[in-house]
Amino acid sequence: MVLTREEVAEIAQLARLALGDAELEVLRTELAAILDHVAALQEVETTGVEPMTHAVPTMLRLRPDTVAASLPVEVALADAPAAKDGCFEVPAIIKAAT
């Protein structure tokens, strides 16, 4: 299978991974090899087979609507790379998105 550089770059953008040219090139061949391997799945006849999403059939258990203590603000922010006024701080969200 052939992956183009553009395709790999597009996936990296979706995944928010800043990859250098060399890294992109390595990944292009590695991904192609893995996708070739994975292509074997297409040999399997799966018409009408219900996709298995959980190993043991289970139904969603529901939680009662009760409140437990929240984390103290200082604990919530303890590991934040940047914080200000009780908030997580990030570089400005670009103007176009505001």
């Binding site: 939680r63 609507d65 009760t66 409140v67 437990a68 929240s70 984390l71 103290p72 603000v73 919530a76 922010l77 006024d85 009780g86 908030c87 997580f88």
Partner: peptide
């Protein structure tokens, strides 16, 4: 109109100090 959040037990509420209504799931 619930007391707690959709997927964890931290409280819902309006006007509380920022980030005072969280837990590991919310964060």
């Amino acid at each position: 109109a619930t007391e707690s959040k959709a997927f964890s037990a931290s409280a819902t509420g309006f006007g509380a100090p920022p980030n005072s209504l969280t837990d590991p799931t919310v964060l």
